[in-house]
Design a protein around this nucleic acid. Structure first.
Length: 516
DNA sequence: TTCAGTGCTCTAAGTTTGTA
DNA sequence: TACAAACTTAGAGCACTGAA
């Protein structure tokens, strides 16, 4: 570790750039984080104050006034923090499209998600192991503020990736735990992205020597131009495409402003693999606003296989993402629990880690519940404790919660008369909770676990509301309510399934032991 | 004061150019 | 000859600068 003299003005460090991979790496040597969709940035705090730099080293402190103010509150003499500046949308996901507007108009909506610490109090930390750097960083950041720590998601990479995909996130970043920080491209950090594959009609192609070849694509049916895509076919397919284009030379579509060296007659269909913008459902729905040629393909597309419809039918190709595994798992809350998403996405269960092997039995997961396996009541308690500790957002009291009827001698988490700190969720966990809410299991299941620890009939409701409100920093409650409103006409009763609820009340927890 | 032009952010991969 | 780096492309929205 190199030590610099105190009072030295720290300088921008070129960020480490992760390598794009198809699948995240497996193994214990890697830690995994959510990939946020925002601006890569670097906060520098030294004797000269706080500065915030862009990925290329431009000083954008003046654009990030609120974040600079927040960074000034960090308890350190000097630090260089690597992270991403993001804005959350109504769904609680980072929204790149809203970021530019927020920078100029909604400073209060900006967040800095910190994921690495390069320098601290005169010490250059770049030669330390990634895991150690992040541990120090984690201890520096108070939860619940404008600067958030990007929590690692322990668990197996494939399962995390599956749920990241399901949650509508952009992707995930895997970091070698023992790696040093080195500027520029590196394979110590790997990013795996979630793509959507859709079919579009080919309008024309741009092909010039020395430049990438593009396919201009239109919405099928309407023929409306939606954007261009990189053509990444192999040599054989590429030649086949050029041949097809030559055979179907056509005129430019009416009203088309863009120019293409070669327009083609309608009838050629291309499959375009593109990144999402927000949630998958909103990608297309919001991707065609009524003001001309919108661009649902935010970034360059790849895998633009071009076929005519007949050939497409023969090949039996359809749109959509690759088939998801029948069931998968994700560890949350300090590794105590695992959420298991079964086939159809409606069945989410909460299991102890040691029961992970039963994940492969989708037929058993038809209960649409989050259940506790292992008969250890401390497990769900651990979940809430962990989230509370991480969030650290004081202020609100949880009404209605009373003593623990199951164990009257033991202090209850939500003891009556004892102001309980509000539960909150650090960013990386938000989408897990959002996912649960979207599947309609949040209130019924997590709340149910809490409910059975209380003697108040509706004690869980304010808890969940508060949990949501705080977890999404003012955004989530409104959205979740409207979602429930649409689906269920308001909040559901604590349990839809009365018998299930009664069983739970009597037994304190729903117990489900998988048959071996 | 208005308008036009430029620069900035994000992204990926083919092509060209430069270096070892 | 092989590899690495730079350049190119698209889109949106905003800030900034300079000219009219």
């Amino acid at each position: 570790m190199r030590k610099l003299a105190s009072g030295v003005r720290l300088e921008f460090i070129e960020p480490l750039m992760p390598t794009l991979v198809e699948k995240p790496p497996e193994g214990d040597g890697w830690s995994h984080e959510v990939k946020f969709d925002g601006y890569r940035s670097q906060i520098i705090r030294d004797a000269g104050g706080v500065r915030i730099f862009t990925r290329r080293g431009l000083d954008w402190t003046s654009k990030y006034r609120d974040l600079a103010k927040a960074a000034a509150g960090l308890e350190t003499e000097g630090a260089i923090i690597d992270g991403e500046i993001i804005v959350l949308n109504d769904a609680g996901l980072s929204d790149f499209g809203e970021l530019r507007k927020a920078i100029t108009r909604r400073q209060h909506d900006l967040y800095f998600v910190a994921f690495d610490l390069l320098h601290l109090n005169g010490h250059d930390l770049r030669d330390m192991a990634c895991e150690e750097r992040r541990e120090i960083l984690s201890s520096m950041i108070e939860p619940g503020g404008r600067i958030q720590f990007s929590e690692a998601l322990p668990g197996d990479a494939a399962s995390i990736f599956h749920l990241v995909d399901k949650a509508g996130l952009e992707g995930m970043v895997s970091k070698r735990r023992d790696s040093k920080y080195r500027s520029g491209p590196s394979t110590n950090w790997l990013k795996a992205k979630c793509y959507t594959i859709d079919e579009y009609e080919l309008l024309g192609v741009e092909r010039e020597a020395g430049k990438p070849a593009f396919a201009l694509m239109a919405e099928r049916g309407t023929g409306r131009y939606v954007g261009s895509a990189f053509i990444t076919l192999n040599r054989e397919m590429r030649e086949r495409l050029w041949q097809r284009v030559q055979e179907r030379v056509g005129a430019a579509p009416r009203g088309m402003k863009r120019t293409a060296p070669q327009w083609v007659k309608p009838g050629l269909i291309g499959r375009v693999k593109h990144l999402r913008r927000g949630r998958p459902s909103s990608c297309l729905a919001a991707g065609f606003p009524g003001r001309g040629l919108a661009m649902p393909i935010r970034r360059k597309a790849v895998d633009a296989g071009i076929f005519d419809p007949a050939e497409l039918a023969l090949l039996g190709r359809g749109s959509g993402s690759p088939q998801a595994p029948a069931a998968s798992a994700l560890f949350v809350a300090g590794g105590n629990l695992v959420f298991v998403g079964g086939e159809g996405c409606k069945d989410l269960c909460l299991l102890g880690l040691r029961n992970l092997e039963v994940v492969q039995g989708p037929p058993e997961f038809r209960c649409d519940l989050i259940e506790l396996c292992g008969r250890d009541p401390q497990v769900p308690v651990g979940l809430f404790k962990t989230e509370r500790r991480r969030a650290g957002l004081g202020g609100d009291e949880l009404e209605g919660a009373t003593g623990n009827v199951a164990d009257p001698q033991r202090a209850h988490e939500l003891e009556a008369g004892q102001p309980a700190k509000v539960l909150g969720v650090p960013f990386p966990q938000l989408w897990v909770l959002g996912l649960l809410a979207d599947y309609g299991v949040f209130h019924d299941c997590i709340a149910k676990v809490v409910h059975h620890r209380c003697d108040g009939e509706h004690a869980s409701q304010p808890l969940v509301k508060t949990f949501l409100r705080r977890g999404l920093l003012g955004l989530r409650l409104r959205v979740v309510c409207s979602q429930y409103g649409r689906r269920c006409g308001g909040y559901r009763q604590p349990c839809d399934d009365a018998s299930s609820c009664e069983r739970g009340r009597n037994s304190r927890f729903h117990l489900w032991v998988p048959s071996s």
